[in-house]
């Protein structure tokens, strides 16, 4: 009986020592676990705050929060972690969208840069062309100035020539007037001469447009009497046309021209109607 009791007592001491050792180990584990859990809780809260916090000017705040009490309870910890995961998903989605936009923007930027490079090249080309054109313009302006000087000189010469032409025209007009006067005088003198010489060849020198009227018709002796004579320029042997209104009806030859009257023979070959007093004669 004593041996059995002794065995149990020894076993009891051994078990107590083992219990103390196990308790010591568990204490260390609990401390470590507690520290780990606190660290994790703080990390989760920090991550949640970071995820929900805004960052001006691009990132907006998310109105969703993690409950620290819920995080410390194993029954609600999962829900809080799900909230954290949702926050992370939202931010990840925003990041994805932003990356996508960034990619598009970079593509557009590359395209725009290429267009800009092309535009710069075109601009350089255009500037060179402008410089070349400016040089040509300057050259042309110089040539134009020279031509304008020449034009000015030519215009001056033209003005002088015009004045000369005007002078010449005036002289010509004066000469023409003198010529007309001389011709008229010559014609008058020829008529006078024909009157004195009774030259039938100079009859044609009668004044153009000389007209008169038949005042008497004698069909028996085949002559008429006119109301114009030598004072009006009529000469002997001249032929005058006879008309009635717009109709030509015959021709007469002056046989005896007096001062203000004349006798003319009727040219029967020309007569298309009997002549009457009042018919007009025209040279």
């Amino acid at each position: 009986m004593g041996k059995v009791l002794r065995f149990f007592v020894i076993l009891l001491f051994l078990m107590a020592a083992a219990a103390v050792w196990l308790e010591y180990t568990l204490f260390q584990r609990r401390v470590e676990r507690k520290t780990s859990v606190q660290t994790l809780e703080k990390a989760v809260m920090d991550i949640a705050q970071t995820l929900t916090a805004p960052k001006e000017p691009y990132i907006e705040a998310i109105d969703q929060k993690i409950s620290q009490n819920g995080l410390m309870n194993s029954a609600t910890m999962g829900t809080q972690l799900r909230v954290l995961e949702t926050l992370a998903d939202n931010r990840y989605e925003q990041l994805f969208t932003t990356k996508d936009d960034l990619k598009k923007t970079q593509d557009e930027l590359s395209k725009t840069q290429a267009e800009l490079a092309q535009t710069k090249q075109d601009l350089d080309t255009a500037r060179k062309e402008i410089a070349s054109l400016n040089e040509r313009i300057t050259q042309k302006e110089t040539e134009l100035a020279g031509l304008q000087q020449k034009i000015g000189a030519i215009e001056t010469q033209m003005a002088e020539l015009n004045r000369t032409i005007e002078d010449r025209k005036a002289q010509i007009a004066k000469i023409e007037a003198e010529k007309t006067e001389i011709n008229d005088e010559n014609q008058r003198l020829e008529v006078e001469l024909a009157r004195y010489l009774n030259d039938p060849n100079i009859v044609k020198q009668m004044p153009k447009g000389l007209s008169g009227k038949i005042v008497v018709v004698n069909p028996d002796w085949n002559f008429v009497v006119l109301d114009i004579g030598t004072q009006e320029g009529l000469v002997n042997n001249a032929y005058m046309l006879v008309h009635r209104a717009d109709q030509l009806i015959g021709r007469v030859r002056i046989t005896n021209a007096q001062a203000h009257m004349a006798i003319a023979d009727i040219q029967n070959d020309w007569v298309s109607a009997p002549l009457q007093e009042g018919d007009r004669v025209l040279y």
Binding site: M1, L5, F8, L12, M15, A16, A18, A19, L22
Partner: peptide
């Protein structure tokens, strides 16, 4: 009585362990 207590204590320690 001591024997019974020792046995019970041993069982308790065993459970705790």
């Amino acid at each position: 009585l001591m024997g019974i207590l020792v046995v019970l204590a041993t069982l308790c320690f065993g459970g705790q362990i």
